[in-house]
Design a binder for these strands. Structure first.
Lengths: 109, 109
DNA sequence: GCTTACCGTAAGTCATGACTTACGATCTGG
DNA sequence: CCAGATCGTAAGTCATGACTTACGGTAAGC
C-alpha cells in the first residue's frame, strides 16, 4: 500500500541508522541523536519521514517522546517484495541459464 | 550485502517502473522506454543503476540488448528485511498494546 | 562498404532533499 | 511560578541525482 514511502525512507543511510537503533528497542529522540553524526533536529526530521511511511510510531512520555518500530511499514514492504519475487520467477528462470554472454552487476571498465 | 544499493535503486519511481516492466519478461531498452514518460538515455541510466544493485542483468542480442530480472538484488533485500523483522519483534511487541496515547503515521495538522 | 537501427556515455541543467542554526512550545521539578 | 530539559518546526544553504540533448560505437541488412 505505502511501500513506496517505506522504500524512499529506508533509502537514506542516516535514516537507516535511526531505524536500526529503534530495532534494538524504544528510544527517545535525544538518545537516538547521541552517537549519530547529525544534529538532533535532523533526527527529528528523519523520524517524521519514517513515521509517515509507517515504519515507526511514537508515544509521549513526559517531556520526552519515545519512538519505536511500527511493523506496518515493514509488512507492506515485504508484501510488495514477495509479490515481485513470485511474479519475476517465471521471467527470470527463462533467462537464468542461457549459453549467451551475460554480464552482471558492477560496471567493469 | 548490497541491500543498500537495492534500496536506493528501488526508491526512485521511474526506476521502479522500469523494474516492474522487466518483471513481466525480458525487454530491450527501447521497448522499456516506449510508454515511459522519459527518454531512452534516461532508461539506460536507470538500468545501469539497477544492474549495479544486482536487480537486473542484461544480454546482448544483435544490435539490441535484452534486460531481465536478476534475483540476487531482491534476495539481498529480502534477507535484510527478514533479519529486521525478527530483530524488531521483541522491541515492537513490548510497545504494541500500551494504554498510553500512541500517534501513528501521517502528520495530522 | 554504407546506411540504418539500437544503445551507452558525456556534458549540462534544474529540482529535490538532507543538513544546519534559530526559535517556540510543552512538560516536569523545585 | 519560574528554570531547565526535551522536542518539533521554520528558514536557509548546499550537494546529489534525475533528466535532457548531443555524440560515438557496434551489429545487421541491402
Amino acid at each position: 500500500m505505502t511501500y513506496d514511502l517505506a522504500l524512499a525512507a529506508l533509502a537514506d543511510p542516516t535514516r537507516r541508522q535511526v531505524f536500526e537503533r529503534l530495532a534494538a528497542g524504544p528510544r527517545s529522540v535525544g538518545a537516538i541523536a547521541s552517537g549519530l553524526p547529525v544534529s538532533r533536529p535532523a533526527v527529528s526530521q528523519h523520524l517524521k519521514v519514517l513515521r509517515a511511511a509507517g515504519l515507526v510510531a511514537d508515544r509521549a512520555q513526559g517531556t520526552r517522546r519515545l519512538y519505536f518500530i511500527d511493523r506496518g511499514g515493514l509488512a507492506a514492504l515485504r508484501a510488495w517484495l514477495d509479490r515481485f519475487w513470485d511474479d519475476s520467477l517465471a521471467a527470470f528462470q527463462a533467462e537464468v541459464e542461457r549459453p549467451a554472454t551475460t554480464r552482471k552487476k558492477g560496471n567493469q571498465p
